[in-house]
């Protein structure tokens, strides 16, 4: 199976949903007109041998409609046939089905896209931010986000949640007062005394 044959068999299965395969520098890509079908199409691609998801990328076509493009790079292991699937999502919707059910490696790739671009993946088991911290208000890879960044609240020191021992009995307080004030002793969490 060559990449072109694989592309044609995907096109034969889904018909008008799939654009004609295009080739650039030896890479075959297929456009998918309805992003809602992406999970079904990826599932079919896996069934014909594309068992390895190399990468998922996202693209912000700022000022154009639809605004988002999501790009999937698939590979058959070990034959090494590669194909690229592309689909677009409008800014109002900003959501498409997750492919975690097809390849588990999609989990972190989709979390990264959600974190960086703000595109949501419905059906994702754990759609949280991954590189930025939970509670960060912006999506930094969008074209309308400035390179210099925007001011925002920092996460509470290094931790986003209360550390397990904080406020418990016999806790050393870090960096407050001299060592006699910091040493472990029974503290009442509410008053910190």
């Amino acid at each position: 199976m060559t990449a072109l044959e694989a592309a044609n068999s995907i096109k034969a299965k889904f018909g008008d949903l799939i654009s004609e395969p295009t080739e650039f520098r030896g890479e075959i890509s297929l456009g998918i007109s309805d992003a809602n079908q992406i999970a079904a199409i990826c599932g079919f691609a896996k069934s014909i041998g594309f068992n390895y998801l190399v990468d998922v990328s996202s693209l912000d076509n700022y000022g154009e409609d639809p605004r988002w493009t999501v790009v999937y790079h698939l590979r058959t292991m070990l034959a090494g046939v590669e194909i690229c699937l592309k689909t677009s999502v409008s800014e109002e919707k900003s959501e498409l089905p997750s492919v975690v059910g097809v390849w588990r490696t999609a989990n972190w790739h989709e979390r990264e896209i959600y974190d960086m671009m703000g595109i949501r993946f419905c059906g994702h088991p754990d759609l949280r931010r991954i590189l930025m911290w939970e509670g960060y208000p912006y999506y930094p890879l969008r074209k309308d986000f400035p390179l210099a960044g925007k001011p925002s609240d920092l996460p509470g020191v290094a931790f986003t949640r209360v550390t397990p021992m904080e406020g418990g009995p016999f806790v050393t307080v870090a960096g407050v007062g001299d060592s006699s004030a910091r040493e472990p002793r029974v503290r009442v969490p509410e008053t910190n005394e």
Binding site: V54, S57, H73, T105, N107, E112
Partner: peptide
């Protein structure tokens, strides 16, 4: 891996880095 989306010119429109460590850690 590097995914480069170019719209012409000397600057990439989008450059995605497929970092092996990131994927391996998942």
């Amino acid at each position: 891996g590097f995914y480069i989306h170019s719209r012409g010119g000397g600057v990439p429109y989008r450059l995605k880095i497929r970092a092996p460590s990131f994927v391996n850690l998942s």
